Amino acid sequence: MDNFTIVRTEHLNHHGYLFGGALLKWIDEYAWLVASLDFTGCTLVTIAMDDIQFKHRVRNGSILRFSILPQRQGRTSVTYGVEVFADEPGGPEEKKVFSTTITFVRVDEEGNSQPLPKLERMRSEG
């Protein structure tokens, strides 16, 4: 599932490019939205985000596309692959600027992990 946002002035760091913290916030938020749609009625919390490496700086006015697909499901957790692409103003084409995996766990009211229902659509490995 894809989500989009535009990089605005309030998202920039002191060098004039996208602040990494803003990108991580969007990844957490958008991936949680996808997971919540996949597991309706389940309370999901973020437990991990792996391999934080920013591949390219992102300019103001860029349109970001977040591609978020399920990769693995355990008994109580699910991991999504996230790829972020930037389409810069006047740029020749969209480029991948970031990728990671993010894992959510289902919890009850006391914060104890709970079994997840089986998700049928998984990203094929490879």
Rank of each mutant, 00 (worst) to 15 (best):
S36P: 03
N60G: 03
G91C: 09
L24W: 13
F4I: 01
V34K: 13
I63L: 14
C42H: 09
G74V: 00
T101S: 08
V97A: 10
T46Q: 06
H56P: 01
L69E: 15
K95P: 00
P70R: 01
F4V: 00
L44Q: 09
G90T: 13
D28G: 07
S62M: 13
S36R: 14
K96P: 11
L44F: 05
I6V: 14
V82I: 12
V97C: 10
V34R: 15
Q73G: 05
R75W: 12
R72H: 10
T9D: 14
K55Q: 14
T101G: 07
F104S: 09
V58C: 03
H56Y: 14
E110P: 03
T100N: 06
Y30N: 11
C42N: 08
V58P: 05
P70K: 02
D2Y: 09
R8F: 06
L64V: 00
G74I: 00
A35T: 09
V105D: 04
D87K: 10
R106F: 00
K25C: 05
D38M: 08
G74T: 00
L64S: 02
I6S: 07
R106P: 00
S77T: 07
D50N: 15
P92S: 13
P70G: 06
L12R: 05
F4G: 01
I63N: 10
T46G: 05
L44W: 07
G74S: 14
Y17R: 08
S99C: 07
D38Q: 13
Y80Q: 02
P70L: 05
S77V: 02
L24F: 12
E29M: 08
G74W: 05
W26M: 11
F4L: 05
L12G: 08
P89E: 02
F19Y: 15
